[in-house]
């Protein structure tokens, strides 16, 4: 390699590896179209650790956001690496959540590793340098092109032992990753959703086609470890002591506040909708409802989204929305 380029790579702490190198990821070498070379900042995924890809829609719903968070945390805490594409929405949220519990995460980019795309994920990009890795087959400085995403998706699935699809529309780029995963013989898991939610249609169809439904983060990890033939780890894997959500917070609530929480979900609702949904549960007027919504928001019982819409409280770990 040109010495000038090499010195540049060193200056920016960018590593370079070819298919002939020993450290070249084993999982990646096995596929037909393994890239000739990889550029990376930080590390490559640990060959001896399990890894899963968490992928999904960029413009995800509140439900998808929360589920990406909960699954990524459980997975990271179980010592499994999270691979994804650092995109807006599910990808970035899952990776940020994995890092937030001290896990490792690796992003496969659609441009040069020195380019943060999307720029909104700058914080995640910087953290991945230290707490995981940024990987790309495209030369340093390559612009992030739309067509590159489909190509890099094969690397995401190849580096993983299973692929989790959190949310996908019927026609979604995420499904390209699924296709690669199946070609490469990886298990595909999909998060079921309501029939009426267009962001769940892709996932529900995947389940109909044979993908494994994701029930709870804990169930997934157990099932995954079992499939990986890791009997000992499976048996040692304990159920979580608390359920997801904030059940313990309920005891501090008034009966009206409990009623308010009962009509909320992870997708934001407007005040008028909440009022209507409450109408057969409790007798409440608008000023009192607004008052309670603010009380609950500042006590982190619920979240205020976009100023005037409310949803169930979700832990915020700094991932872009």
């Amino acid at each position: 390699m040109n010495s000038k380029i090499t010195s540049q790579l060193i200056k920016r702490e960018i590593n370079y590896i070819t298919r002939d190198d020993e450290e070249y990821p084993r999982r990646l070498r096995d596929i037909n179209s393994a890239p000739k070379q990889l550029y990376y900042i930080g590390n490559l995924p640990d060959q001896n650790m399990l890894s899963v890809a968490i992928v999904g829609a960029r413009n995800c719903s509140g439900y998808g956001r929360q589920m990406a968070r909960e699954f990524a945390r459980e997975i990271a805490q179980a010592g499994i690496q999270v691979i994804s594409g650092m995109a807006d929405g599910i990808d970035g949220i899952a990776q940020m959540s994995a890092l937030s519990v001290g896990g490792k995460s690796y992003a496969v980019l659609g441009g040069g590793v020195d380019i943060c795309y999307p720029t909104g994920n700058m914080r995640l990009y910087e953290r991945l340098m230290d707490e995981g890795g940024l990987i790309s087959e495209f030369p340093v400085g390559s612009p992030t092109l739309g067509r590159n995403f489909a190509i890099r998706n094969r690397i995401i699935s190849a580096l993983s032992d299973a692929v989790l699809v959190i949310e996908a529309r019927e026609k979604s780029g995420t499904l390209i990753t699924v296709t690669y995963a199946l070609e490469q013989g990886k298990d595909v898991y999909a998060l079921p959703g309501r029939v009426t939610d267009s962001l769940s249609l892709g996932c529900n169809k995947l389940i109909a086609d044979g993908a494994i439904p994701l029930i709870r983060p804990y169930d997934f990890v157990r099932d995954f470890l079992d499939n990986m033939g890791n009997k000992e780890r499976t048996d040692n894997y304990k159920a979580p002591t608390t359920n997801p959500g904030n059940d313990n917070i309920h005891e501090f609530m008034t009966s009206k506040q409990r009623a308010i929480v009962s009509v909320l979900d992870y997708n934001p609702k407007s005040v008028s909708e909440i009022l209507y949904d409450l109408s057969d549960k409790t007798d409440i007027e608008i000023p009192e409802l607004l008052e309670n919504l603010t009380h609950m928001t500042i006590r982190h019982m619920i979240d205020c989204v976009d100023g005037n819409n409310y949803c169930i409280h979700a832990e915020n770990d700094g991932a872009s929305r």
């Binding site: 960029r58 413009n59 995800c60 719903s61 509140g62 998808g64 807006d88 999307p118 909104g120 529309r169 009426t196 939610d197 267009s198 962001l199 997708n267 934001p268 989204v305 976009d306 819409n309 872009s320 929305r321």
Partner: peptide, 19 residues
């Protein structure tokens, strides 16, 4: 409108990116 298509945060109808 809350976004160019007008339906945010209803992701069933809105596919506007954060940007």
């Amino acid at each position: 409108n809350p976004c160019p298509c007008g339906h945010y945060p209803d992701r069933n109808q809105c596919n506007c990116s954060d940007g």
